[in-house]
Simulated assay, not measured.
Amino acid sequence: MRLAVIDLGTNTFHLIIAEQNAGELQIIYKTNQPVKLGEDITKNNLIIPTAFERGITCLQDFKAEIDKYEIDVVKATATSGVRSAKNGMDFVEAAKERAGIEIDIIDGDEEAQYIYEGVKWSGAITGKSLIMDIGGGSTEFILCDEESLVWKKSYNIGAARLMQAFFNSDPINETDTSSIINHLAEELKALKIICNEYAPETLIGSAGAFETFAGMINDDIDIKTIATADIPLLDYKNLAAQLIQSTHQERANMEGLIPLRVDMIVMASILTNYILDEFGIKTIKLSTYDLKMGVLQSLKS
Results as ranks from 00 to 15, higher is better:
residue 44 N to M: 12
residue 44 N to K: 15
residue 44 N to H: 15
residue 45 N to H: 15
residue 45 N to S: 12
residue 46 L to Y: 13
residue 46 L to Q: 13
residue 46 L to K: 12
residue 46 L to V: 13
residue 47 I to W: 11
residue 47 I to G: 04
residue 47 I to Q: 04
residue 47 I to V: 14
residue 47 I to K: 02
residue 48 I to T: 14
residue 48 I to G: 06
residue 49 P to C: 10
residue 50 T to P: 07
residue 50 T to H: 11
residue 50 T to Y: 11
residue 51 A to D: 02
residue 52 F to C: 07
residue 52 F to K: 06
residue 52 F to E: 05
residue 53 E to F: 11
residue 53 E to W: 07
residue 53 E to D: 13
residue 53 E to Q: 15
residue 54 R to N: 14
residue 54 R to Q: 11
residue 55 G to P: 13
residue 55 G to L: 01
residue 55 G to M: 00
residue 56 I to Y: 05
residue 57 T to L: 14
residue 58 C to I: 14
residue 58 C to K: 07
residue 58 C to G: 11
residue 59 L to A: 02
residue 59 L to E: 02
residue 59 L to K: 04
residue 60 Q to P: 15
residue 60 Q to V: 14
residue 60 Q to F: 12
residue 61 D to H: 10
residue 62 F to E: 01
residue 62 F to Y: 13
residue 62 F to N: 02
residue 63 K to L: 04
residue 65 E to W: 00
residue 66 I to K: 03
residue 66 I to R: 01
residue 66 I to E: 03
residue 67 D to H: 10
residue 67 D to Q: 10
residue 67 D to C: 00
residue 67 D to Y: 06
residue 67 D to V: 04
residue 67 D to M: 04
residue 67 D to G: 06
residue 68 K to L: 07
residue 68 K to R: 03
residue 68 K to P: 00
residue 69 Y to A: 01
residue 69 Y to Q: 10
residue 70 E to T: 15
residue 70 E to I: 12
residue 70 E to P: 08
residue 70 E to N: 13
residue 70 E to Q: 12
residue 71 I to P: 15
residue 71 I to Q: 01
residue 72 D to Y: 08
residue 72 D to E: 15
residue 72 D to N: 15
residue 72 D to A: 15
residue 72 D to Q: 13
residue 73 V to I: 13
residue 73 V to Q: 12
residue 73 V to R: 15
residue 74 V to N: 03
residue 74 V to F: 05
residue 74 V to R: 02
residue 74 V to C: 05
residue 75 K to G: 05
residue 75 K to P: 00
residue 76 A to N: 00
residue 76 A to C: 03
residue 76 A to V: 09
residue 77 T to Y: 01
residue 77 T to V: 15
residue 77 T to Q: 02
residue 77 T to I: 10
residue 78 A to L: 07
residue 78 A to I: 08
residue 78 A to P: 00
residue 79 T to C: 05
residue 79 T to Y: 04
residue 79 T to W: 02
residue 79 T to E: 02
residue 80 S to Q: 06
residue 80 S to C: 01
residue 80 S to E: 08
residue 82 V to H: 03
residue 82 V to T: 12
residue 83 R to E: 05
residue 83 R to M: 09
residue 84 S to E: 14
residue 84 S to Y: 07
